[in-house]
Design a protein around this nucleic acid. Structure first.
Lengths: 131, 131
DNA sequence: AAGTCACATTCGCTAATACGAATATGACAA
DNA sequence: TTGTCATATTCGTATTAGCGAATGTGACTT
């Protein structure tokens, strides 16, 4: 991870499809790790590593609630970086596949019958990524 | 190079410090390769490879003029991608180090006495990256 | 305490990336 | 044609990123 220009770090964080899916799921909502695993349908360590990457890049924050960890987007302090994140979210929202991710998220946490193994898991809470 | 989401390609292209320097130098001007080599002060194959990367990523175009190759930025057709490139340019413009690059570019091509070895090289031409 | 659940980290391994050095290409000059 | 200049590509290698599998950790339950 070269430290040269701050934007380069952000771009590296955004340059992976799994991380883009995670970011898309966090748009507007604080999400529990278990839902990421359910929706993305990938091994839990893979999800956890990508979330750690995003955390080190400074674009997500965490909140612990007992056994559960919630992740949420945070806007970078730098205005240009923040603008890039916002534009990225807007672009992801238009992607068909990523829209399906959001549908699966709705089904997993708020649908008529939640998926097995997730009963009792904390629901996502709406939040506004600062500004 | 994973083909998943179009934005991921763009982010990979923008995730390298040398490529950010090249992009910064091309902001508003069509530039000859020899000036890149002079200003960045890196081996010519390195410059050439990064320019090829940007070309494959679809954010620069080339124009041949005899022995010289000119590179210029082109805005991606996708509006979100274009917005990201523009924000990136605005951010790079504020970086001290990258401002020095632009100063060296001015000295190399338009200063009182151009650097040795570049006499006769074609001057950059102003152009507007579409829209 | 021991067990379990949710999540994080470590350990090889493979694949992609970036690099310097050398070489190739394409355009012009003599 | 031969040579030279500007640029591109290839080659071998070092570094890095992403992955599955296994293991570690911290919080709650019993």
């Amino acid at each position: 991870m070269k430290p040269e220009y701050p934007l380069a770090h952000l771009f590296r964080a955004l340059a992976d499809p799994t991380r883009l899916r995670l970011i898309n799921l966090m748009a507007g909502q604080e999400i529990c790790v278990c839902y990421f695993v359910e929706v993305i349908d990938a091994p839990q360590p893979k999800i956890s590593r990508h979330l750690a990457y995003l955390r080190k890049a400074g674009i997500v924050a965490t909140r612990r609630e007992g056994k559960w960890m919630h992740y949420r987007l945070i806007m970078p302090a730098d205005s240009h970086a923040a603008a890039i994140v916002k534009t990225t979210l807007a672009s992801l929202k238009q992607d068909k596949e990523l829209q399906r991710d959001l549908q699966r998220l709705t089904r997993a946490c708020c649908g008529p019958k939640s998926l097995v193994g997730l009963l009792g898991a904390p629901l996502p809470k709406n939040h506004l990524p600062n500004s």
